[in-house]
Computed example of a mutant assay.
Amino acid sequence: MPDPTPRAPDRAVPDAAPLNWVDRRAPPRWRPFLRLSRLDRPIGTWLLLIPCWWGLALGLLAEGRGPSLADLWFATAFALGAALMRGAGCTWNDLADRDIDAAVARTRDRPLPSGQVTPRAALLWMAAQAAAAGLVLLTLPPLAIAVALAGLAPAALYPFAKRVTWWPQAVLGVAFNWGALVGYAAAAGRLDAPAWLLWGAGLAWTLFYDTIYAHQDREDDALVGVRSTARLFGDTTPRWLRRFLLAAVALMGAAVLAAGTGGSPLALALALGAPWALGWHLAGQLARFRPEDGPLLLRLFRSNRDAGLLALLFLGLGALAA
């Protein structure tokens, strides 16, 4: 375990949630490592976890059954795994991006570019989190384990995507929504069309919310040569956000229909509320979108936890009624 002694004065990250528990309650010597894992900013963990729960609920709908005790453990394991793997992934991302982060106003106070954590200590911290996540992973069914391991590749590639493509948000979407496949495999014991359609819906959703998020850094990204959909779309961003919204709704609706047409009509009707709830929330975000308003962009991005949980509510009700 790395020596948690910071090399620079303790400082909070500007876009962390105000009054978060890391800044208020964590031991000062551990705060840089907890910030490295983004535990002061839990929205990313939610956005990684919610597709896992979507997949689990959709798999139950496809099987025509309600949750068992094993499924409840899977839901818990996904929560633990999402927190650990998000921490490991963010540590890896910050190791790869530490020079870029030092040149961007919003990220220059992160633990690595500010010198609060050394690269060697960050590597050890990443390994510890990944090892703990691996122990949780071993409690899942074999197919779910295999699917989860396959998802490590896009997660590892994401930090480098912004250097070679204008679509790094798509690479993030591939990685962040892989949990939909894992959750479905855990519940249904297979991977078929509903799982892949749900994964596609999550990908479109990520393109929506992370394009909004990337607009905070457009000017700095242009100066340091980092690519993003925010820079690519520019003034046409609202048009692209509308396309991503429609794709997310259509693909989630197709996933529910593919999974639930052989089961209870009530279960299908309830589950079909999920794409409409997601679309309603995203439409509200689009109506409020102002690319020059940084604080608003951050609020819109964070509100996607509620968008995802609304969709989960209807998928869960459909599974319970199956």
Score class of each variant (00 low, 15 high):
Q116K: 08
L149H: 00
A103W: 01
M252R: 07
L296N: 07
T211I: 06
T206D: 13
L138H: 04
A322F: 00
L315C: 15
A130F: 03
P141H: 13
T91C: 15
P119D: 00
G262P: 10
M85A: 01
L246D: 15
G316W: 15
A254N: 12
A88G: 06
W276Q: 13
L268C: 02
G273I: 04
P27Q: 13
I145A: 01
R35V: 10
A254H: 05
A26L: 08
R163S: 05
A148G: 01
W167Y: 09
Q169V: 05
L223F: 06
A247D: 04
L49N: 10
P142T: 02
A133L: 06
L257V: 11
P159Y: 13
L152G: 09
L157A: 05
R65F: 01
A274C: 05
A248N: 07
A188R: 09
A277K: 10
F233C: 07
L112E: 01
L84E: 08
P141E: 07
L266G: 12
R31I: 11
L207M: 15
A103I: 08
L157Q: 12
L310C: 10
G179H: 02
D10L: 14
A8E: 02
V147M: 08
D97P: 11
R288H: 07
A96V: 09
D23P: 13
P6E: 14
W167K: 04
D235I: 11
A122Y: 10
P265M: 01
G55R: 04
A17K: 11
P154N: 04
T45Q: 14
A70E: 14
L124G: 14
A201C: 07
P42R: 14
A185N: 14
R35S: 04
S68N: 02
T45W: 07
L49Y: 15
I100L: 14
A131E: 08
A287I: 09
L315N: 05
L80S: 05
W73Q: 13
A128V: 03
F208N: 08
P238V: 03
G115L: 04
A128Y: 02
P154M: 11
L48C: 06
G44M: 08
A269K: 10
P2C: 01
P2Y: 04
E219R: 15
A214E: 12
L197F: 09
P275E: 06
G273T: 07
G253K: 04
L197Q: 07
S37A: 15
A187C: 02
G273D: 14
W240Y: 15
V136H: 00
I212Y: 05
L47E: 09
A267T: 04
L152K: 02
A8G: 13
C90H: 14
R302E: 04
D221Q: 03
A132V: 01
A156K: 15
R35M: 14
G134K: 00
P18V: 12
V171F: 00
Q116R: 10
A83F: 11
A170S: 02
I50M: 09
P18N: 10
R41T: 12
W196T: 08
A133W: 00
R29N: 12
A128W: 01
D306W: 13
R24C: 12
L72Q: 14
L72Y: 13
P275Q: 12
G200Q: 08
R106N: 01
R190V: 07
